[in-house]
Amino acid sequence: MNTYITKPVLIGLAVICATLVGADFLRDGHGYFSFENWPLIYCAIGFVVYGVLIILAKGLRVLIERPENYYGDLAIDSEPEPGMGPIAPEKSGVPHD
């Protein structure tokens, strides 16, 4: 279960976003293109583009996803990551059981 995007985090983000909506009135409207001066356009770009990007990426994943050992021994995907030199093994951590 994901424990980090909690309700307080969401509320905090919402408060920041609400503040930035208010700050939209401080803009001086000096964009290069006329649509840049539309109210809250950058809020919409950030929110919508992010959502669409993730949904498209999930769709792409359906098409191109393969098992980790797809390329067999000719790739590093199913190999363990190497330690970083001779002192790595004894200092490396291990997950809890």
Binding site: E36, A44, F47
Partner: peptide, 19 residues
Amino acid sequence: ADHVITQLQMLFFAALAFA
């Protein structure tokens, strides 16, 4: 002011979408 506000709007609303 314009550049800072629009950049923050874009980034924080994207972060909200992520959350």
